[in-house]
Design a protein around this nucleic acid. Structure first.
Lengths: 265, 265
DNA sequence: CGAGGCTGTGAAAATCCTGTGAACGCGGCT
DNA sequence: AGCCGCGTTCACAGGATTTTCACAGCCTCG
């Protein structure tokens, strides 16, 4: 089921370690793999870790001093979804067992090969992402739209939009990357799961379907903007602004052939 | 009397290894910890592993010969919930990385201390046993349905539904996740315990059986809703136009008080 | 201001998905 | 052995969803 390439998803990790050489090498590999990595040479408050929305944390407890066990335990309890990997110097079996028991997911011994560290972090976070429910299920609200991954649907005040799977996934992707212009190829790759054939218009067609449904249920907003020669950008924009005199445009007039193209910037 | 201390849940593991000394020691510890352990000195057909409903598998790929990688990969793909731990002699970084990438959860080097092996197995299977056992045996009432896990049966006003085991588990899963759309793959994974083969229609068939039985005993309600291209969603809905019955507040479910999803015809 | 490439549209054609009924094995039981 | 209950697998029919096309209306650039 693994698509091509070793790393299928982008992973967010943090490293707490003073060994700058190791960290540097790791950072390089992480970049190649498309992971985002942040580094600290000292303990990071748990609450900050929460805010970072990490998939994995690689840590050398040696930098923590006496509080090490306590710190690890707190992290493990507070962030059950986080893959917690220890990488440290000499340790006894008893220490490793203690660490693993109190919530550490993997324990490596220095010196450790960065590639192996990456692989272990990946393995640990793979295990954690399975069986998670909430992570993907968090509803997303933009404009008067609410996107709910747990139902594969989007809602506006008046009710559901009734989207097909593809439509939903396209909308979800666009909304997640709200504000960014996404190229067609990128969109296709993400939603369809494989490379887009040259000349394929599927993305355009689905954008149209989405625009239709969005407009029907939320006429006073504009969501998907075209960037000529590139792709699309999602951004809820209220069309209201002129004084309140509009004599109720009364829809059904199908003579609105085109959408305004946003080429700005 | 449950063994107090470190091991809070009973874990089922299997060991595939020829080192009988190591296995013996491990078996002893496992017994003390209250785990159930089965042992084999040679490869075990994946389907047998499925039947064993394991939490963890400790394996020395050396006993597998040439097929080792293939075997590991197959196991990992087929049993995503299984904690797969390798324990073998000398190995290269590249081998470890390869193993971890293709689905192995942890990789130890022999000789390894049995206590550490236990701790690592526990760590990799922790994820799946955690956060899931709270309301395990609690009866669940939805619509005019009552689901009793302690009996493996569901009841409506007029009596029991007479469900087979699979039917019950499917219903239970759906009801627990009420309101959420569950993908076929996830349903299969949860109820059957291993990965769904492409093209398998079992879930559909069981949904039909459930719908039939539900309709026979509770004709005025609709419970299982189809989401085209995705899977199913459980949500009791009265078919009668509710004269004045409040639209079932169905609180508690989510924090978002929102409309009910209308997909069905 | 015109050519040429891009995007929006509507609809037909091609695919894919789900509901069903029924045949098939596999054990367990009598 | 023969008879069930249960879970799996098949093949089909009816729909729902995606793709593909052919055109027409824009946008850029020269």
């Amino acid at each position: 089921m693994r698509p091509v390439g070793a790393y299928t998803v982008s992973i967010r990790i943090a490293v707490i370690d003073t060994d700058s050489g190791f960290v540097t090498v790791l950072a390089k590999r992480a970049e190649v793999a498309g992971w985002s990595l942040s580094h600290s040479a000292g303990p990071v408050p748990p609450r900050d870790l929460v805010a970072m929305k990490l998939n994995g944390l690689l840590i050398d407890p040696a930098v923590l001093g006496d509080e090490a066990w306590d710190y690890l335990e707190r992290i493990a309890a507070m962030l059950p979804e986080l893959g917690l990997v220890v990488c440290t110097g000499r340790s006894t079996v008893a220490q490793r067992v203690r660490g693993l028991r109190l919530g550490v997911d993997d324990w490596m011994t220095k010196p450790c090969h960065p590639e192996e560290a990456m692989a272990r972090i990946e393995a640990v976070s793979r295990r954690h992402t399975r069986g998670r429910r909430e992570a993907e299920g968090a509803p997303l609200t933009v404009g008067e739209l609410e996107i709910r991954p747990d139902r594969f649907q989007a809602f506006v005040g008046s009710g559901p939009l009734v989207l097909t799977r593809r439509e939903f996934e396209l909308l979800h992707l666009l909304a997640e990357e709200r504000g960014h212009v996404l190229e067609r190829e990128r969109i296709y790759q993400q939603v369809w799961g494989y490379a887009m054939a040259h000349g394929d218009r599927s993305v355009d067609v689905f954008v149209r379907k989405l625009r239709q449904k969005l407009e029907k249920r939320s006429p006073s907003w504009s969501y998907i903007h075209t960037h000529f020669g590139i792709g699309y950008r999602f951004e809820p924009e209220s069309l209201e602004s002129p004084p309140e005199t509009a004599p109720a445009p009364l829809a059904e007039d199908v003579s609105q052939p085109f959408h305004k193209l946003a080429t700005s910037k």
